[in-house]
């Protein structure tokens, strides 16, 4: 199973690195990353595989949301099924 992680916020050094470190820490495998900076705003989408997560998915969501709060970023982690349902017939 995959999840989609999105990060939006003011650009600073090391955003991608800090998110990736958390993913690695909990054994979430990054499959694809798309990242851009527009007018100093950082926007990133990360596809991660969560089959071998070392903690429950919902706890992993908390970890990332808290990281977002620490770094003043808007971080969402959502199970991919919601995108499947909404955008694919």
């Amino acid at each position: 199973m995959n999840a989609i992680l999105s990060v939006v916020g003011k650009d600073t050094v090391g955003i991608l690195a800090s998110v990736s470190v958390k993913c690695a820490e909990y054994n979430a495998n990054v499959i694809d990353v798309s990242q851009t900076v527009i007018n100093e705003y950082f926007a990133m989408f990360m596809f991660i595989n969560i089959d071998n997560l070392s903690i429950e998915f919902n706890d992993f969501v908390d970890v990332l949301v808290n990281l977002g709060k620490e770094k003043n970023l808007e971080i969402h982690v959502m199970h991919e099924e919601i995108f499947n349902m909404m955008h694919k017939i």
Binding site: D32, H76, F83
Partner: peptide, 16 residues
């Protein structure tokens, strides 16, 4: 895979 527009659309629907 989903394109960025679809991902953003879903997030905007929920958050905004």
């Amino acid at each position: 895979m989903y394109n960025k527009r679809e991902i953003l659309e879903t997030i905007q629907m929920i958050k905004e």
